[in-house]
Design a protein around this nucleic acid. Structure first.
Length: 946
DNA sequence: GTTATCACG
DNA sequence: GACGTACGTGATAACA
């Protein structure tokens, strides 16, 4: 029968649907082997719904014809127009990939036409068939919610969103784009699309684009009359970018004459062949659907074994009751000592598609560590260790060591593993993968793709517990890992892993891989349920290679500068020490707070000494500063306190910085390589260790000079880019404070503005003193302000501080609302979250006692600090691609600052590019109501760049 | 190993 | 009504 009037074609956007089903549905796996089939299940369901509805043929829009349309591959004719089209599409998740071929198989099993055309997107085929259907006198419904298809909506064509069960007609399109369907292309060409990487006009979003099209009617008219636009910025953008906009139009316009090797008549709905569809559904182990389909077809469902069913990986409590966990058996671990065995393991890894990997080395410092062995696990309880660099116990007369016998050559093993470790189809699983990533990178292997159980735990549990392997194994697997100390010993007699006896090494190392694999199996489905898949996949995991590269790059430190400073400090310390002891009248250890407190408050009888909970006097800088003000009543005490403060400052600079940093210079690279912990801080901030390069002095002139030792090599420069007031900007957005937002938009000094609002002082009469108070309050707010805390910070009476806070809340009531809403949210949910969905647990929030106060303030601070942390993470993740063409390296992150080392000639190109990445980092996930501003500095040293 | 102190954002 | 408070980190030296 010829397709025509009365016929209704349904076109399912298969590729788009798989992604949506994957993200929207719980992660189902096939029980017999754990194959992920969640998206396939969702897909089969809508397919079957389509078929069964059409046969009931009661609905007005019931389909008479049906097809599923897929993208053939990621490269299409659009890449010829614009090579970067869809270039920043992330790789599909690992457990989705095997489901692509299965959905095509499902389509054929249901006897539904399965269409794809090389070089074209599914959208083009859909456009072609929809237009043909209307031309033939029939109608068409597109089963998709993709906005790119909305340009097709019109007489005879509508859309249906299967996830939301809602029809999309011209009204819904206007709601989305602000223009009717026939102008959607114009709006998309202007606004561009960051997901598909359609350029559009910079600075013009959906709103502005719609406004312009509404005013000028269509894109060609708009471009022709661009000169008439009143706003100078928009006018220039449109004139300058006319070509980009025209290219964008070519990209977003769907092609409705795509070659399709099927006629409309071919798409007529037929019932599936019973045996074919049953075979497929049984293979997938979809029990419910198998039964539904069998009922409808009037046949008996094939019997599925009881154990065989879809399973949403059970909750923890069910795991314990339902399934006996496989015990850990160290004896079953394999030591790989010949290439045939290694090849069998590699084959098994490829069969399964994933492998837990762990490395053993001679050092925790990846830049110094030599690879000693590699462990692998593919199935729980089945793990292997490949010793590579173990040495013989004794060593000869000269302490030299020889390689232990019976080990595969390192180079051979790496060569055999490299294809697997770099294979995009094999998922590598690690615990703290950044470590192993660096070890392998130094051996010429770049691990991809990978999962990291430490980061999964962090995404789900930040604030509840630590994320180290031993703790996770104990908590989730009820297993106590072999302590590394039992192999290496501790203290002076500690040995390195290459000296560990092979039998012990196998047990320890293979256990690590086994534990990691089991944790991964447990965490993978939980991630989705906890609602943190996106956080994990966009903010945690992609950071690993970025940080690894930064750490490996290191920063050049001039040892001579530090040595010189250390010498000067040493002399000063001797002088100060003598002076202090002469004031005190007896020798004592100036570095001992206990002795100092006793001298000051007991022997010298300085008033105001307070003992802490350990019984010792407090002698912190704030206490000593108070003592220095007693010049009149107790001049000796005041002098002593002042000298001790000087001594402390210099002792700190010497021991923590000028001495320690010299030690930290890597002898091979001449540079300092810090290590960032991704899962260290609960809020999402990074932490820097070994050494900590996030607390290099800057606030005092003396301290800042240490930054002169951080240098760029000849011909290169250090460039520092830092977010200006990022936390206050985020507060202005989250709490939605119009005055603050406006101040940031207009570039007004935010602390001065706060002062002006609070103390009724006009901006042009602002004094530094009033501004200082307002600044303290602004920071206090971010920290969960209290009268006591502010009073102490400003050294004013508590009542006065409370008065300031009251006035502040009166002036900015939104802040108080934010604070109380946040605390309430934490109390009922046990966590707070950032704008990007990062969850930070607040386990003490409902405790009584002083703990609750801490928890409340932490809860108020966490979304602000955490959102800022997310923003710079996003910037860092995008940075390598953005600066790829430049001779520039990102070296350090200091919470709101990124430090780069750049070839002199590339500085003018780096700054605008990196700045743009940072300023736009929140988008498109979050549209901040306050823009982010980034300030740049450059110079031969970090001191000069800041 | 814990405590006090102080460096950073 | 009293309690004890600014948020988040890491390194060092002293001391138990």
């Amino acid at each position: 029968m010829t397709f025509g009037k009365g016929h209704h074609l349904h076109l399912i956007d298969g590729s788009a649907y798989i992604f949506r089903a994957y993200h929207a549905l719980p992660p189902l796996t096939r029980k017999s082997d754990g194959l992920p089939v969640g998206a396939v299940a969702g897909f089969c369901n809508i397919l079957w719904n389509e078929l069964s509805r059409s046969n009931g043929s009661n609905g007005d829009k019931a389909a008479t014809h049906l097809a599923v349309v897929f993208d053939h591959s990621s490269r299409t004719f659009r890449n010829a127009i614009y090579s970067d089209y869809k270039a920043n599409r992330p790789e599909p998740p690992e457990d989705l990939r095997p489901q692509f071929p299965l959905t095509r198989e499902a389509t054929r099993a249901f006897n539904v036409a399965c269409l794809e055309t090389e070089g074209f997107e599914a959208d083009d085929i859909i456009a072609t068939l929809a237009r043909r259907a209307v031309a033939a006198g029939g109608s068409c419904t597109i089963i998709s919610s993709d906005k790119d298809l909305m340009q097709l909506v019109g007489p005879g064509i509508d859309m249906f969103d299967p996830m939301k069960s809602r029809t999309i007609g011209p009204d819904e399109v206007i709601e989305k784009f602000g223009v009717p369907p026939d102008r959607v292309i114009d709006v998309q060409s202007l606004a561009g699309d960051s997901v598909d990487n359609v350029p559009g006009a910079p600075g013009i979003g959906l709103k502005t684009a719609a406004l312009l099209i509404q005013e000028y009617g269509d894109l060609d008219t708009l471009l022709a009359r661009a000169g008439e636009i009143r706003q100078p910025k928009r006018r220039d953008t449109l004139i300058e970018n006319a070509d980009r906009i025209r290219i964008s139009r070519e990209l977003v316009t769907l092609q409705d004459d795509t070659p399709v090797d099927a006629t409309l008549e071919d798409l007529e709905i037929r019932l599936p062949e019973a045996d074919k569809v049953m075979e497929f559904l049984a293979k997938m182990e979809f029990r419910t659907l198998t039964k539904r389909v069998a009922d409808k077809l009037g046949i008996a469902p094939p019997s599925l074994p009881e154990t065989s069913q879809l399973q949403v990986t059970p909750r923890e409590e069910e795991t314990q009751s339902n399934e006996e966990p496989l015990p850990f058996d160290h004896a079953s671990y394999v030591r790989i000592r010949d290439s045939a065995t290694l090849d069998r393991w590699i084959a098994r890894i490829r069969e399964v598609g994933h492998v837990a990997v762990d490395t053993e080395t001679t050092s925790l410092d990846e830049m110094q560590a030599a690879l000693v062995g590699i462990s692998l696990a593919v199935d729980p309880g089945q793990a292997a260790y490949i010793p590579l660099g173990h040495t013989t116990g004794g060593g000869d007369l000269f302490g030299a060591t020889a390689l232990a016998p019976d080990q595969l050559p390192l180079a051979d093993v790496l060569a055999a593993l490299k294809p697997v470790l770099e294979d995009p189809a094999v998922l590598k699983i690690g615990q703290n993968m950044k470590y192993d990533w660096k070890i392998f990178a130094r051996n010429g292997i770049r691990i991809t793709p990978f999962d990291d159980t430490m980061l999964m735990s962090y995404a789900m549990q930040a604030g509840l517990n630590g994320h180290g392997m031993d703790e996770l194994a104990d908590r989730y697997l009820g297993h106590q890992c072999i302590p590394i100390k039992s192999l290496l010993g501790s203290g002076k007699s500690q040995i390195t892993f290459d000296k560990v006896a092979l039998d012990d090494a196998v047990k320890y190392a293979a256990e690590d891989a086994d534990v990691t694999l089991r944790l991964w199996q447990l965490f993978k489905p939980q991630l989705h349920r906890a609602g943190v898949t996106t956080v994990y996949e966009t903010l945690e995991r992609p950071l690993v290679p970025v940080l690894a590269e930064m750490e490996m790059a290191g920063i050049k430190v001039d040892r001579e500068v530090l040595r010189g400073m250390s010498n000067v400090f040493a002399q000063k310390l001797v002088q100060l020490e003598e002076e202090i002891q002469s004031i005190a009248g007896e020798p004592f250890n100036v570095g001992s707070p206990k002795q100092l407190g006793e001298i000051l408050f007991d022997r010298m009888q300085v008033p105001g000494g307070e003992r802490g909970k350990t019984g010792a006097y407090g002698t912190g800088a704030d206490v000593l500063e108070d003592v220095t003000t007693l010049e009149d009543s107790h001049p000796q005490g005041a002098r002593l306190a002042a000298r001790v403060l000087d001594w402390r400052q210099i002792a700190k600079l010497k021991s923590t910085y000028t001495d320690a940093l010299q030690q930290a210079i890597n002898p091979d690279t001449g540079r300092v390589h810090t290590c960032y912990s991704i899962a260290g801080a609960n809020t999402g901030r990074l932490a820097s260790t070994d050494p900590n390069l996030q607390n290099i002095p800057v606030r005092t002139e003396e301290g800042r000079r240490i930054r002169e030792a951080f240098v760029a090599p000849a011909g290169r420069v250090l460039v520092s880019l830092d977010y200006s007031q990022i936390e206050l900007r985020i507060l202005a957005h989250i709490a939605d404070i119009p005055e603050l937002r406006r101040a940031f938009e207009e570039g007004i000094d935010i602390h001065a503005l706060t002062a002006s609002e609070m103390f009724n002082v006009p901006l042009d009469q602002m004094t530094p003193e009033i501004r200082r108070k307002a600044k303290a309050i602004n920071f206090g707010v971010i920290y969960g302000i209290s009268g006591f805390g502010l009073a102490r910070n400003l050294r004013i009476p508590r009542a006065e501080a409370q008065g300031f806070i009251d006035r502040y809340f009166e002036r900015f009531p939104g802040i108080r609302t934010y604070m109380s809403d946040t605390v309430k949210f934490a109390q009922s949910n046990g966590h707070v979250q950032t704008l990007f969905g990062r969850k930070i647990h607040t386990s003490e929030i409902n405790a009584k006692g002083p703990g609750a106060g801490f928890a409340k303030r932490a809860a108020i601070n966490a979304p602000i600090q955490g959102t800022a942390a997310d923003v710079i993470r996003r910037a860092m993740i995008r940075m390598p691609a953005a600066i790829a063409g430049l001779d520039a390296k990102m070296l350090l992150q200091v919470h709101d600052e990124l430090l780069f080392e750049v070839a002199e000639t590339d500085v003018p190109r780096l700054i605008p590019v990196a700045k743009e990445v940072m300023e736009s980092a929140a988008r498109p996930a979050v549209a901040l109501k306050v823009h982010l501003a980034v300030e740049a500095g450059q110079g031969p040293t970090w001191a000069a760049a800041h």
